[in-house]
Write a protein that binds this DNA or RNA. Structure first.
Lengths: 203, 203
DNA sequence: GATACTAACAAACGACCGTTCGCCATGGAC
DNA sequence: GTCCATGGCGAACGGTCGTTTGTTAGTATC
């Protein structure tokens, strides 16, 4: 990892933990054992960092869409849910920036971030549409159902902690089931039992 | 509305629109046709504003819990979903601060905000628990199901616009249905048809 | 009228901010 | 050895920040 990548990585962390505006370049530099002014050997501006982190996150999310398996809408949605949550788990700082801190970009960089986010959402909506067309997802309003799914998925960055007691596998399985049920996909025929777990996090 | 309430109201708006740290007191004052220093006649600190907005939002959300009707878990959950979304629609700035900007509080004020949020969540979880106990909600993990529901509900502040094409009524009905289905409550027996709508917003 | 209170202004304090720039040290190429 | 490129430091620039303080104007009370 070269210096620029280090800077980006740490910027993602700090921006996500404390917020873009509450993170100073001097502080970012200190975390890298540098002085603030030294960062500009490798980057052109603070804002460039923010956008680059957004781009990195967008790339990861987009890859989830592009890697969905062939198959029916249910399998593909299950894979989408799992992929989305995996990105959050593996790239929590970047995901956090992608979900919230992007707003601090100014035009025209802001437009790029919006476009990246919109692109991903359209991909998700296409999948919901696909399921609805096939009569597998029983939704009255595809757009609204998409927003519901993305809402449930996106907010996990607020409470899920990969190093917590809830494994990604467990989260993904449960979430896939909840999402598919919400969409009205035929429920699994096996019986279900209830467990109470000790997950950390709060919404 | 007295001056202090005006300040709180405008603070809520600006904090939610641009973020706590990206909102200066001079700017807040300008929106009220005052100078920055004049705000201190009415408040003690910027942070006090933030906490007060969080408190106001918490109060609204808590009232939703306290106003749930007597009845079965399904009716109560439906009412919770609708109440939660109504608060977001009616108090979008405060809700936004409650969901995200609270993090910028420093200890010990931060602890109060956390406690307020936790209190609300525990109320929601109690309802999910109630439904699971009654065998109406088929969830394996009450905590996780609660986080799912809150995730779906909370993230709406990011994309729902009360003055947009999607009415609160429509949103609430759809959301209640999706949430109840996710929880495995018996689906409504009536047929469902699909519509595509033109909602604004992006997740 | 004199006094007290309230609300706001304007200036200032001490701090911090993103960024630039002159300088220096190091390492590699010739 | 000399030259050049790279990477970093430290100081500075021009600006902003939350907050305080002295002052002023208006209003109410005696």
């Amino acid at each position: 990892m070269d210096r620029r990548e280090e800077i980006l990585h740490m910027a993602g962390k700090l921006f996500s933990q404390r917020g873009y505006h509450a993170t100073s370049m001097r502080e970012l530099a200190k975390h890298l054992n540098l002085q603030g002014g030294s960062l500009y050997t490798h980057i052109s501006s603070k804002e460039e960092l923010l956008l680059e982190v957004v781009r990195q996150a967008a790339e990861r999310f987009q890859k989830v869409l592009e890697s969905l398996p062939q198959g029916g809408p249910v399998e593909r949605m299950r894979a989408l849910v799992k992929g989305h949550l995996r990105v959050i788990a593996e790239e929590l700082p970047r995901a956090t920036v992608f979900f919230h801190e992007w707003k601090h970009l100014s035009p025209p960089l802001l437009e790029e971030a919006k476009a990246l986010r919109r692109r991903y959402e359209e991909g998700v909506q296409a999948l919901v549409e696909e399921g609805a067309r096939a009569g597998v997802f029983r939704v009255e309003n595809v757009r609204l159902a998409t927003l519901f799914v993305l809402s449930a998925l996106n907010w996990t960055y607020q409470w899920y902690r990969p190093d917590g007691p809830l494994s990604l596998e467990e989260l993904s399985e449960a979430y896939a089931k909840l999402v598919l049920r919400a969409l009205g996909a035929a429920p699994s025929p096996e019986g279900e039992h209830r467990e109470e777990g000790g997950e950390d996090g709060e919404a």
